[in-house]
């Protein structure tokens, strides 16, 4: 059975945190996956692939990180920041770019791929299977189009194996349970029945 967008958002935050990201960036990961899935792209897959690749048990290294670059674009309100930069999983930049666009659209390309991003959605044709490489980005402005992917209210069914990866990473944010914490931490220990 399918996943809700709110659910994948919450899971993505935990997974990014589990991979070692700071909480504030992890929250952006939730925003990104929610946005991509809602606009017809496989956000859960992109995030899972990226995090799986770069997870660090102690302290996250943000080198070539699409989320950190996305934050910079969104924070400075300037997509030019991405020109010529090298990142993993460029698809994860799309929601940040949409944040800063006005009435125009932006064509983001790397290697042989390109997507067109505008405020209310994306067009992505023939995206190659994503790989483990980093990619050099190119961006040019373009006219808006009505030819965007249709909006979705649920996470795509294809996300399932990637959700499993996100779950594994999210699990790293949970403290192992002990009998002591079960009683003290939750404040139980009294009889529930009456």
């Amino acid at each position: 059975m399918s996943w809700s967008l709110g659910e994948i958002r919450a899971l993505s935050v935990k997974a990014a945190r589990g991979a070692g990201m700071d909480w504030g960036i992890a929250e952006e990961a939730g925003f990104v996956v929610n946005w991509l899935e809602a606009h017809g792209l496989q956000g859960a897959k992109s995030l899972a692939q990226y995090l799986y690749k770069v997870q660090k048990p102690n302290g996250f290294e943000y080198e070539h990180c699409p989320l950190k670059l996305g934050c910079l674009i969104s924070d400075t309100n300037d997509w030019n920041e991405l020109q010529g930069k090298t990142v993993h999983e460029p698809l994860l930049l799309a929601p940040f770019i949409a944040n800063v666009l006005g009435d125009e659209s932006l064509i983001l390309s790397w290697d042989n791929n390109s997507i067109t991003i505008q405020k209310n959605g994306v067009t992505a044709k023939n995206l190659n299977a994503l790989d483990t490489q980093q990619h050099v980005l190119k961006a040019i402005l373009s006219e808006n189009t009505s030819d965007i992917l249709s909006n979705k209210t649920r996470v795509s069914e294809e996300a399932e194996p990637h959700v499993a990866i996100l779950n594994t990473l999210a699990h790293k944010t949970y403290a192992p349970s002990t009998e002591a914490s079960r009683l003290a931490g939750a404040g139980a220990g009294l009889n529930d029945n009456d």
């Binding site: 909480w23 699990h171 944010t173 949970y174 403290a175 192992p176 349970s177 002591a180 914490s181 079960r182 003290a184 931490g185 939750a186 404040g187």
Partner: peptide, 26 residues
């Protein structure tokens, strides 16, 4: 404040007595 792996239950631990700080929620 942390989340226990057991049914993902939020809990409150003692920082100076339990090894839960790495799991701290913001």
């Amino acid at each position: 404040w942390y989340v226990s792996e057991e049914k993902l239950e939020p809990r409150l631990g003692e920082r100076h007595e339990e090894p839960v700080e790495p799991y701290e929620q913001p």
